[in-house]
Simulated scan of single mutants.
Amino acid sequence: MERKQTSTVNLGDVGVGGDNPVRVQSMCNTDTRDVFETVSQINRLADAGCEMVRLAVPDEKAAAVLADIREQSSVPLIADIHFDYRLALAALEAGFEGLRINPGNIGDEQKVDTVVRAAMGYGTPIRIGVNGGSLEKDLLRQFGGPTPEAMVESGLRHIAMLEKRGFHDIKISLKTSSVLNTIKAYRLMSEKVDYPLHIGITEAGTLVRGAVKSAVGLGILLYEGIGDTLRVSLTHDPVAEIGVAYEILRSLGLRERGPEIISCPTCGRTEIALIELAEKVEEALRGVEEVFTVAVMGCVVNGPGEAKEADIGIAGGRDLGIIFRKGEVVRKVKGNDNLLPEFMQEINRFLEERRQ
């Protein structure tokens, strides 16, 4: 893979594009007017590895608390603005590190001028967010619907509005729920501009469906070198989006965070509650940032051999388990109820050794 070289924008101390890694972001689903719940979710996202968080700013009540949220948050924040240019100004004044707007829908030329001047003054990037479900009517008529070509044309229009005002601190997204249309739209836009691209499949669906659609669509784009920041959109707790995002990046060799857990799919030889054990191991390791490989296998006969490249692993059988490192058995565990606690103790020893 060879990533396309794009320009760089900075959201606080987080660089996007250029030689920076592909960044992971998400969006709060809390009521922004509820400061406590919003800050709590932002910080849970940050703990999971989210590097920037977008917030909806629907009205003046939400805008009034943005400074409080900014003060208590540990990662750069992006304000999502539609229609009312004053909300964008409030976000900038509150210290938000990014705006997500479409210049064409925040008012007349004078209002666009005001927002762009303010963004330039604060050094705040603007993400132009094109969505296939809300394209301009004339483009829908011209292209016969929300086609990839129509989405790109919409994006180019908004880019031109910023460029003619001397503003170039731009990111771009072109989102639709169609995987194939999203891929084509980003390919087309990548050929036309060198601005960093934020990639995602919007309205992707619930946990499994959304993860699959995102993995296919974003995986193809990333493999082709397209994409500087991404969001996995799920109808779920936003924190789950971060884990899926990092697994996509890990599978392509682009980024790693936390342990990689491999586990067998179970078969007729399985004599333990392997699914439950694997899920509990995954949950227990959720806050660990070190990169290593953990295997959870259901067969003491083949488990260590099949997972011999794992840094540490466990294989369970009838009332007996074995813990191994790099395929070599280090000890045995009697009683299936002891498998998880004994394995976690061994993982803790392993991590302590690595940290010395």
Rank of each mutant, 00 (worst) to 15 (best):
E2T: 00
G12I: 10
V16T: 04
G17V: 04
S26G: 01
M27Y: 03
V39P: 01
R44V: 07
R44F: 09
A46R: 10
M52C: 12
R54H: 13
A64Y: 01
I69L: 08
I69R: 03
E71R: 06
D80Y: 03
I81G: 01
H82M: 09
A91L: 04
L92Q: 03
G95I: 13
E97P: 04
R100H: 06
N102C: 06
N105M: 12
G107T: 04
D108W: 03
E109N: 00
A118S: 14
A119Y: 00
G121K: 15
T124N: 07
P125N: 07
P125M: 02
I128P: 01
G129Q: 03
G129V: 01
L135G: 09
Q142R: 15
Q142T: 08
F143R: 10
A150F: 09
I159E: 01
I159S: 09
F167L: 05
I170A: 12
I172S: 00
L180Y: 09
N181R: 02
I183V: 08
Y186I: 04
L188T: 08
E191H: 12
K192I: 10
I201W: 02
A211N: 05
V212N: 08
V216F: 08
L218F: 01
L221T: 01
G225F: 05
I226A: 10
V232T: 02
I242S: 07
Y246Q: 07
I248Y: 05
L249H: 07
S251V: 05
E256C: 12
I262K: 08
S263M: 13
S263D: 09
P265Y: 07
C267S: 11
G268H: 14
R269Y: 15
I272A: 06
A273V: 06
A278H: 14
E279N: 14
R286A: 15
V288W: 07
F292V: 15
P304E: 12
I314N: 02
A315M: 00
R318G: 10
I323W: 08
G327D: 13
E328V: 12
V333Y: 01
N336A: 09
D337E: 13
L339Q: 00
M344K: 15
E352N: 14
